[in-house]
């Protein structure tokens, strides 16, 4: 497994990013306070909205984080590589979708993993499906979408995304094979 600087940001960088987050928060609060000072008639509306969204968030965020933490520790990279390397066809796409959707970390971790999978023999369609599922069908995301946008919105978008991501995976595989065979834009990394 490739482990370079981009796949695991050093601790110092993570801490710096966090500090930036809190500074940005402080700035936002100050700005909001100033704005509401100028428009006192908007205070009730603004605080009521903020309060209701805060309550909605606070009742689910710890649970979502626990689910995320558990999956990131219990689903190892070895497991993903083991199952995704050999699965193909519809089954392969389903496995890729499932592993991509498991909450196991941010997108920048998925690229080196996808590259490793590719070298282990996973097909292009599986890699594309895996990456896309990792990006947009993550379980914690779906839970928060369910909370804020409702079951109809979440389910419709989820089903449509699953269908189109699968189609896109197969389509990209065909394009890459077709162009590679004709020597169009063959890149070292992608060509078999």
């Amino acid at each position: 497994m490739k482990q370079d600087a981009t796949s695991t940001p050093p601790r110092k960088k993570a801490r710096k990013e966090m500090a930036r987050g809190y500074i940005l928060l402080a700035a936002t609060l100050v700005a909001a306070a100033v704005i509401l000072r100028i428009f006192p008639d908007k205070v009730t509306a603004a605080t009521a909205t903020t309060r209701s969204y805060f309550l909605e968030m606070v009742t689910i965020l710890p649970a979502v984080m626990i689910i995320m933490g558990l999956f990131s520790v219990f689903v190892s990279r070895e497991l993903v590589v083991k199952y995704m390397g050999k699965a193909s066809g519809i089954r392969g796409i389903a496995v890729a979708m499932l592993f991509g959707a498991l909450p196991t970390g941010p997108l920048y971790l998925a690229f080196p993993l996808a590259a490793a999978l590719r070298s282990k023999g996973a097909s292009i369609s599986n890699i594309v499906v895996f990456l896309s599922a990792w990006a947009c069908i993550k379980i914690p995301q779906e839970l928060i979408e369910l909370q804020f946008l409702g079951v109809k919105f979440m389910a419709a978008r989820l089903i449509l995304t699953i269908i189109f991501v699968a189609i896109m995976g197969v389509f990209i595989e065909k394009i890459i094979e077709w162009t590679d065979n004709r020597g169009i834009g063959v890149s070292q990394k992608v060509a078999r």
Binding site: A14, A45, L61, M65, F74
Partner: peptide, 24 residues
């Protein structure tokens, strides 16, 4: 895993508060 959960929670928290204030 709980360690990971707490860390990600602390990391996402400022962004959550910022967006809630902006939504307000």
């Amino acid at each position: 895993a709980m360690g990971v959960a707490v860390k990600s929670f602390v990391r996402i928290l400022p962004a959550v508060f910022i967006i809630i204030v902006i939504i307000g």
